[in-house]
């Protein structure tokens, strides 16, 4: 027995750890904002009601299996019959009554939670961010602040943020689990949710409505800053690019047709993410890789490896005709990586 435990200890430990460790970067159980917290609390109500029912009904079930098992698991046909009762109306009425009562216990916090998440809090004015989903990246616009960014948004700590979601193509769903539940991006609907972060940090999110080939690679990050840090961030983002001298490769491959780099002539495309301050972001390719020179080079080298079917690959690398056709040398790649990293 001891030996058995010894051999399997690492696996058991791994299971135990994985079973208990539910604080991944997208954990709904680690609520870091009022919306997520309230939703989690309503979840706990349903959870404990379920546990209570399970304890009673499951207990009866288990008791019946042990207590009323036929001797030896099987009896012959002429063995004396057990009780042949057909039911008990009082018990049935009781079950119906009790379950309605339990549903009431779950229903009240549910309705409260729906209304809480679906109503903007009064008092502090919410910051508005317009989110647009593309196959497969996110655009964040701050209409009141004049900031546009891609795949990474920043929000101030302690202030409600009103995310208005819309889509440029198919359905997507906007979800930052540690801050709160999700909202689908449906064409023709102006849907919104409000979220709020309690403390500074990186909050990961991901598209949760199936949106085609690279659905799995449509992630995002929301950074929460203290208010004064946030103001600094806004000022930085509003400025034109720190380096407006785009290298030859940037022009050669017509990056500006799809991407905007404010300050660079001709770089005003709206199809791809705004790159004006791409160097200041912590991730690339819609949150799937950390922002490092190596990762960026890998991404530029063949975008289809990291994100199959993406527009940059299909319209650029696969384009049959000059000048859209992209075929980079190592030198081109290094030049572009260096430039993009410099766009802090």
């Amino acid at each position: 027995m001891n030996r058995w435990i010894k051999n399997w200890q690492p696996l058991l430990a791994a299971l135990l750890v994985s079973g208990c460790s539910l604080s991944g970067p997208q954990s709904t159980l680690d609520a870091d904002g009022p919306v997520a917290r309230l939703q989690y609390e309503t979840f706990l109500v349903t959870f404990w009601v379920s546990v209570a029912i399970f304890a009673v009904v499951g207990g009866m079930f288990l008791y019946a299996l042990v207590k009323f098992r036929a001797p030896g698991g099987e009896v012959s046909r002429d063995y004396p019959l057990p009780d042949q009762g057909h039911g008990n109306p009082l018990l049935e009425i009781g079950v119906i009554f009790v379950s309605i009562l339990l549903i009431g216990i779950v229903a009240v916090p549910t309705v409260y939670g729906v209304l809480y998440a679906g109503t903007l809090p009064e008092g502090q004015k919410a910051l508005r961010i317009n989110v647009t989903g593309y196959q497969w990246w996110w655009k964040f616009e701050y209409p009141e602040l004049g900031v546009v960014t891609g795949n990474e948004a920043a929000i101030p700590v302690g202030r409600p943020v009103e995310f208005h979601v819309q889509t440029a193509d198919v359905l997507h769903s906007f979800w930052i689990p540690r801050l709160g539940g999700k909202m689908d991006l449906t064409p023709g609907q102006d849907d919104w949710i409000w979220l709020q972060a309690d403390k500074p940090g990186n909050y990961w999110g991901q598209c949760t409505e199936f949106c085609g080939e690279s659905h799995a690679f449509m992630r995002m990050r929301v950074q929460a800053f203290e208010p004064e840090e946030f103001d600094k961030w806004v000022a930085g983002q509003k400025a034109v690019a720190v380096n407006t001298q785009a290298p030859a490769a940037f022009n050669k491959f017509q990056c500006g047709v799809c991407h905007t780099v404010r300050g660079v002539p001709g770089a005003a495309g709206l199809v791809g993410p705004d790159l004006t301050h791409v160097g200041s972001r912590s991730s690339i390719a819609a949150g799937i890789k950390d922002m490092t020179a190596g990762n960026l080079k890998e991404w530029i080298h063949n975008p289809n490896d990291l994100k199959p079917g993406n527009t940059m690959y299909k319209a650029g690398y696969k384009a049959m005709f000059e000048p859209m056709h992209i075929e980079m040398t190592g030198a081109d790649e290094d030049q572009l990586v260096e430039y993009l990293m410099s766009l802090k």
């Binding site: 349903t46 916090p109 729906v114």
Partner: peptide, 19 residues
């Protein structure tokens, strides 16, 4: 059935939905 009851809680279902 229990996880179904947990989905019926629309407030938290916005966290569970499509996961």
């Amino acid at each position: 059935g229990f996880s179904g009851l947990m989905h019926a809680n629309a407030a938290h279902d916005s966290q569970q939905h499509d996961t």
